[in-house]
C-alpha cells in the first residue's frame, strides 16, 4: 500500500492504518530504534509508542513521506528513552559513542547560559548539511541520524574505517565552528 493510502486510513480512523504501517515500515522503525537503544525489548516498545504517536498526529497532519515522518518520531522517542535511561546508568551500544563524538562540537558551558531554540538549531543543521558534499553528508547522517557503527558505514561506502573516522572528525570540526559562529552551546555569536 502506498503512503497516501495509508495516510487516508489514518484520516478515516481505520485501525488498518496501523497494520499497513507495520507491514511497510515495521522493520525500518525497529532498525532505527535498535541502533539507538541497543535493546530489542526497548526498541519494540519504542516502535509501539511511535505508532501511537502517529495515530494521534494524523489527522490533523498529512505527511507526504510517511517513512521519514515515522522515522523521525521513532528516533526522537528512542533518544528520549535512552536519555532518561542514561541519567541513571550509562548503557552500551553506539549511541553513547556517537554522543561522545558530538560532545566535541559543544564547548563546556561555563559561561553565560544560552537558551536553545530548537527550531533555530534545526535550521542551522539544515544549512550546515546543505553545505556538505553529498558523500560527506551521507556519512555524517549515517552516523548521527541513523547511529550506525563506523564499521557498517565503512562497509556501506567501501571506505576503510579509518577513513570514515577521519571524515567524521573533520565534519564535526566544521560543525563545531558553525555552532560557535552562531553562538550555540556557549559560543560567541559575533564570530
Amino acid at each position: 500500500m502506498e503512503d497516501r493510502e495509508i495516510v487516508a486510513l489514518y484520516w478515516s480512523r481505520s485501525e488498518q492504518a496501523l497494520a499497513e504501517t507495520e507491514a511497510r515500515y515495521g522493520s525500518y522503525c525497529r532498525a532505527i530504534a535498535l541502533r539507538v537503544l541497543h535493546s530489542e525489548q526497548d526498541a519494540e516498545e519504542c516502535v509501539n509508542d511511535a505508532y501511537l504517536d502517529v495515530w494521534n498526529r494524523i489527522p490533523p497532519q498529512k505527511p507526504d513521506a510517511l517513512g521519514a515522518f515515522l522515522g523521525k518520531i521513532v528516533r526522537h522517542i528512542a533518544i528520549d528513552r535512552l536519555r532518561r535511561r542514561s541519567a541513571k546508568k550509562r548503557g552500551g551500544g553506539e549511541t553513547p559513542l556517537a554522543l561522545d563524538e558530538l560532545a566535541e562540537c559543544v564547548p563546556d558551558r561555563d559561561g553565560v547560559e544560552q537558551t536553545l531554540e530548537r527550531k533555530a538549531l534545526t535550521e542551522l543543521l539544515n544549512r550546515f548539511l546543505a553545505g556538505l558534499e553529498p558523500t560527506e553528508r551521507s556519512v555524517f547522517l549515517r552516523r548521527y541520524w541513523y547511529i550506525e557503527p563506523v564499521a557498517d558505514i565503512a562497509n556501506r561506502f567501501g571506505f576503510t574505517e579509518s577513513k570514515v573516522k577521519s571524515m567524521l572528525h573533520r565534519t564535526r570540526g566544521k560543525l563545531r565552528t558553525a555552532l560557535a559562529e552562531q553562538g550555540y552551546f556557549g559560543g560567541n555569536a559575533d564570530e
Partner: peptide, 15 residues
Amino acid sequence: KTASAWELLDAFGDV
C-alpha cells in the same frame, strides 16, 4: 556538556 550533546543528537532528528 552532556546535555548539549543530547540536544544536538536529538536535533539531528528534525533535519
